[in-house]
């Protein structure tokens, strides 16, 4: 096991990501934030809060997207997945959407998320923010617009992101799976 980001590093990275978002989206009048269920929303909760603090705008549209029904591995997985909640109660038509997930690996989750998103309307633009980019392991042509930390991994390794709210600590570790 190797620590990729400790508590301080993680929080500095979150601040940087939030500032980068504000740099590009300014008031967030035509921008919305959407976190991907289940683990991506822990990151998007944090980022959204920091963005609100920086901009002073408390009315930023923030939604949560579940992509279970859009996965491309439903026929090959043996276990049926019980979905988490989708909560997007605003229009994304003609908006800039910032998709947020914790770890970018094969790119398949993001592919599903874009399909799910388009069913809610036609966004003007979709951007991707991830905390950890597992470089060189992509199976689809998906690249992030905002990256917290880039890491080279092999397939058997696993990146685990811990959050204070859920797991009692802020930390990102790289696990070697047996």
């Amino acid at each position: 096991m190797k620590t990729l980001l400790n508590n301080d590093q993680l929080n500095i990275t979150l601040l940087r990501l939030a500032h980068q978002l504000v740099e590009n989206h300014l008031s967030f009048r035509d921008s919305v934030i959407i976190g991907i269920q289940p683990r991506g929303i822990l990151l998007s909760d944090r980022i959204t809060q920091i963005v609100k603090n920086i901009t002073g705008n408390n009315n930023i549209d923030y939604g949560k997207l579940d992509i279970t029904f859009y996965r491309d591995d439903l026929q090959t997985r043996n276990e049926i997945q019980v979905p988490s909640f989708t909560d997007v109660n605003f229009s994304i038509a003609s908006k800039s959407v910032i998709l947020i997930d914790d770890v970018l690996h094969t790119g398949r989750t993001i592919r599903s998320a874009m399909d799910a998103l388009i069913d809610f309307g036609r966004p003007k633009k979709v951007e991707l923010l991830v905390l950890i980019d597992r470089r060189f392991s992509r199976e689809l042509p998906v690249q992030p617009d905002y990256t917290g930390h880039t890491v080279d991994t092999i397939l058997t390794q696993k990146v685990k992101v811990y959050w204070q709210e859920k797991d009692g600590k802020d930390e990102v570790v790289l696990l070697d799976k047996q």
Binding site: D66, T68, F69, Y70, L74, P83, F85, T86, D115, D119, F120, G121
Partner: peptide, 17 residues
């Protein structure tokens, strides 16, 4: 509950199955 949410959207069709 999830599907009820989907049925109340303008695009009600999923690619799931």
């Amino acid at each position: 509950d999830n599907f009820k949410g989907v049925l109340n959207r303008s695009i009600k069709k999923l690619p799931t199955l």
